[in-house]
Write a protein that binds this DNA or RNA. Structure first.
Lengths: 244, 244
DNA sequence: TAGTGGTCTAGACCACCCT
DNA sequence: GGGTGGTCTAGACCACTAC
C-alpha cells in the first residue's frame, strides 16, 4: 500500500499500526500479520518493520512470541499512560477518563529559590520564569503544577506567554530547546492549606508529589517542576515491558 | 577485539560498553568512540552497535547528537534505577545508598481476597501462595511487600520456598514462568498501625504504595503485589529519555 | 568539507512453535 | 516441515554539526 504521512518511514508505519490496533482493524487480543506480510503490505524492509514492532513491544502494546506470532495486548490498549505520561498531565487526566483543561494562575519572572538554583544549576543573580498552573478534569481542579525556567533561556521579547501549553511545547515556542531526558522523584505528602484550597479538597489528605527536572541533549537543565495531585481522583499508572 | 562473554553479540557489546562507561574507560561526561570505531573495536556490524547504543540512549545513559558524537551522561551514571526499578526493591534500596537485605515474614497458601481474585483472574475456589516480606536498608526495615501467586501456577512439591529471591527469580524457580510486562499503580497513603509497627516509624506518616501486577507473554497474570515504603528514607526516582 | 549519527534496504542464518 | 520471530551482516544514502 502507499504511504502518504509525514515523517520517516518507520514513523509512518508506527502511526499506521497504532491506528489499526486502536481501531480494531486487527482483532483485539488476536494476532498481527507476520513480519513478512507487514513488509509486503507497507512496502518496506523487514528491518524497518522490526524497529517499529520493537517499540510497540517495549510499550507493552504487543506481545511477541518466537515461532508463533505477534499478539495485540488489549490490556494495554486502554492505558494511554506509558512512561512519558509522568509529565504529560493532560494525558494523565485523559487516561483516568476525564476531559483535561488548564488554567494559568501566574507567569512571572522572579529570583530563584535555593532548590531551583541547585536544580537548574543557576549562576549568581540569575532569575527564573515561574509558571503556576492548575489542571482540571471535567472542570474540577486536580493537579497543581509549578515550573521554573532559567530566564536566560527564554527568548527576548517573547511574551505574553501561552499558559495552556505543555512544557515541551512551551520550551520549544519560547526557548527553542528540545528535551532530551528527564529525572523524576515521586513522593507522598500531606496537603497543606494552600493545596486543600486550590484543589478543593474537603480536608487534608495524602497527595502524590512529582518533582521533575528536564535536561536537553547538552545536559543542561531546562526546567524544574513540582506538582501535586490526589491519587484518589487520578491514577498514576506505569507500564513496563521486557522484550524477552 | 575478541569477545568471550555469553549471550548474543548485542548483549556482549551492551555489557562491555556499560562496564567501560562505569569504570571510566571512556571519559565521564565526554565522548564515546564513533559508531564505526566501535564496529572495528568489537568486530561487529554497525547495525549491532546501533541497537546497543539505542538501548543505552533510551535509558538516558548516553546522549546522541547527530553530526557531532555520542556523549556519556554522568548524571545518570549514578542512578541505577531506570524503569524496571519499580519492582526490584533491592536495587531501589541500593540506589538510595544502602545495603539491601530481605526477611521473609510468612509464605503460605490461602484463599484469595476479592482484589487478588480480580487481579489474578482466578477461578472459583482457587487459592493463592501469599508472600509477606520485609526489605531492609542497612539492617533497618524500609519496605513491606505483599505478593500473591495463583497456587495453580506453582510447581507441585517445590517447597520449601526461598523468601530471599526477587519476584522474577521466584517465578522462574518455582513456576517456570517468565514475566513479559507489568502494570503498576502508585498511591499515597497514611501508614496504619501495622505499618507503623513493621517499619518502625515514630508515628503515622504518608507513605508510597505500589500496586503491581505481572503478566506473562500469554497475557496471563502471574503475580499481584502491594508494597509500602517511606519516601523520606528511599527515593523513588525515574528516568525518561527521548531518542529525538 | 569531513566526519558523525539517522534511516533504510536486501539477504542470510538461527531458534522456536505448531501440526 | 513450514512458518514465525530473533540475530546479524554489508552497504547505501541522507541530515546534521563542526571546522
Amino acid at each position: 500500500m502507499t504511504i502518504i504521512r509525514p515523517g520517516t518511514i518507520a514513523n509512518q508505519v508506527n502511526a499506521l499500526l497504532r491506528e489499526r490496533i486502536r481501531d480494531g482493524v486487527y482483532p483485539p487480543g488476536g494476532r498481527l500479520p507476520s513480519e513478512s506480510e507487514l513488509c509486503d503490505d507497507f512496502g518496506v524492509s523487514r528491518a524497518t518493520v522490526r524497529t517499529v514492532l520493537a517499540k510497540l513491544a517495549t510499550e507493552g502494546l504487543i506481545l511477541r512470541k518466537q515461532g508463533d506470532g505477534t499478539y495485540i495486548n488489549e490490556h494495554i490498549q486502554q492505558i494511554n499512560t506509558h512512561l512519558g505520561g509522568l509529565w504529560e498531565f493532560g494525558r494523565l487526566i485523559e487516561s483516568s477518563g476525564y476531559r483535561p483543561s488548564i488554567r494559568s494562575i501566574s507567569i512571572s519572572e522572579r529570583s530563584p529559590t535555593v532548590g531551583e538554583s541547585q536544580n537548574l544549576n543557576l549562576r549568581e543573580a540569575e532569575n527564573v520564569l515561574a509558571l503556576e498552573r492548575l489542571f482540571y478534569a471535567d472542570g474540577k481542579p486536580v493537579i497543581l503544577a509549578h515550573n521554573s525556567i532559567p530566564s536566560r533561556l527564554v527568548d527576548q521579547g517573547s511574551g505574553p506567554f501561552d499558559g495552556g501549553l505543555n512544557i515541551r511545547d512551551f520550551l520549544w515556542r519560547y526557548c527553542h530547546r528540545k528535551i532530551a531526558y528527564a529525572i523524576s522523584d515521586i513522593h507522598s505528602v500531606m496537603a497543606g492549606e494552600e493545596l486543600v484550597d486550590l484543589l478543593s479538597l474537603q480536608r487534608t489528605r495524602p497527595l502524590l508529589q512529582i518533582q521533575i527536572i528536564f535536561y536537553d541533549r547538552d545536559n543542561q537543565p531546562l526546567v524544574c517542576g513540582t506538582s501535586y495531585f490526589d491519587d484518589k481522583l487520578l491514577r498514576l499508572r506505569l507500564v513496563q515491558a521486557w522484550g524477552g
